[in-house]
C-alpha cells in the first residue's frame, strides 16, 4: 500500500494552487524516494515538474511503485476541504482505482476522509537534460509575481534580459512599453529579500506572459524564486517547497520566425 502523512498539510494545499491553473490532470508517481509529478500544459508550451521527497513526510510508506492519475480540479475541490492547520495523509492500496485523502485537525477532534476515483493517464514523460545555465536570477517571489502582473498589462510577451548590470523585464503593446530593471542586491542581509544574479554570459529571451502569470500561483510556497536562462532553451522558474522539495516550471521561449 501507499501512505504519506504530511504534518504541514497547508503545503499540499498550496501545491494544488500552483498546479491547477496550468494542468487539468496529472500522474502522481510514487516510489520509496517520494512523490514526483511531471506534466505539460494542454498547449505543450510549458512543463511542470514537482518533487516531494519521502523524508519530508512525517510518515511515508510505498510498498510498490505507484502512478496515480488524478483530475486536479477534483483533487483541488477535496483539498479545499482541508484547513490550513490540518495534517494531510494520502493513501492508496496497491493497484487501486481510488485514492483517499485524510485530514486530521491538530487536536484530533475532527478527522475527515475523502475518496477520489483515479484516472488512467498514459502521460508521456519528457527527459530534461542537466543544463549549466548562462544566467540564474534569485529574487523575492512576491517581486517576480508583481513584475509579471504589471508588465502583462502592456503586452502578451515579456522580454527577460540578463546582463552583468542586472536583469531587465520588458513588455510592449498597444498602450505602450514597460521596463523594470532589478540590480543585484548590494548587501544580502535578508537572504530571501535579495536579488542575486549569476551570469556566465548575457541572455535575452522572450516569453508569453500568461504562462509566467500561471507560474506565479506558486508564490505562496516560497519567499524566493529562481529563474534560470540560457540562449534558445526553456526558462526554468523554480520555487522551493520548505525542506521537502520543489516545483519547477519550464517555459519554451518565443522565437523569431
Amino acid at each position: 500500500m501507499f501512505e504519506a502523512r504530511l504534518l504541514q498539510g497547508s503545503l499540499l494545499k498550496k501545491v494544488m494552487e500552483a498546479l491547477k491553473e496550468l494542468l487539468n490532470e496529472a500522474a502522481w508517481d510514487c516510489s520509496d524516494a517520494g512523490i514526483q509529478l511531471q506534466a505539460m500544459d494542454n498547449s505543450h508550451v510549458s512543463l511542470v515538474s514537482l518533487n516531494l521527497r519521502a523524508e519530508g513526510f512525517d510518515k511515508y510508506r510505498c510498498d510498490r511503485n505507484l502512478s496515480m492519475g488524478m483530475n486536479l480540479g477534483s483533487m483541488s475541490k477535496i483539498l479545499k476541504c482541508a484547513s490550513n492547520e490540518d495534517i494531510i495523509t494520502i493513501k492508496a492500496q496497491d493497484n487501486a482505482d481510488t485514492v483517499t485523502f485524510v485530514f486530521e485537525s491538530p487536536d484530533q477532534d475532527k478527522v475527515s476522509d475523502y475518496e477520489m476515483k483515479l484516472m488512467n493517464l498514459d502521460q508521456e514523460h519528457l527527459g530534461i537534460p542537466e543544463t549549466d545555465y548562462a544566467c540564474t536570477i534569485r529574487l523575492p517571489s512576491s517581486e517576480f509575481a508583481r513584475i509579471c502582473r504589471d508588465l502583462s498589462q502592456f503586452g502578451e510577451s515579456m522580454v527577460i534580459s540578463c546582463t552583468k548590470e542586472g536583469v531587465r523585464f520588458s513588455a510592449t503593446g498597444d498602450i505602450g512599453t514597460g521596463n523594470i530593471k532589478l540590480a543585484q542586491s548590494a548587501k544580502v542581509d535578508k537572504e530571501e529579500e535579495a536579488v542575486v544574479i549569476e551570469m556566465q554570459e548575457p541572455v535575452s529571451l522572450t516569453f508569453a506572459c500568461r504562462y509566467l502569470n500561471s507560474f506565479t500561483k506558486a508564490t505562496s510556497l516560497s519567499k524566493s524564486v529562481q529563474l534560470s536562462m540560457s540562449p534558445e532553451v526553456p526558462l526554468v522558474v523554480e520555487y522551493k517547497i520548505e525542506d521537502i522539495g520543489h516545483v519547477r516550471y519550464y517555459l519554451a521561449p518565443k522565437i523569431e520566425d
Binding site: 505539460m40 505543450h44 508550451v45 510549458s46 512543463l47 508521456e124 514523460h125 519528457l126 527527459g127 530534461i128 537534460p129 510577451s157 522572450t206 508569453a208 532553451v233 526553456p234 519550464y250 517555459l251 519554451a252 521561449p253 518565443k254 522565437i255 523569431e256 520566425d257
Partner: peptide
C-alpha cells in the same frame, strides 16, 4: 514576427 515554440522542441520523450 515571434512565434511560440513548443516544449517538445527542447525535451525529448523518454
Amino acid at each position: 514576427k515571434e512565434c511560440q515554440s513548443a516544449i517538445h522542441k527542447y525535451f525529448s520523450s523518454v
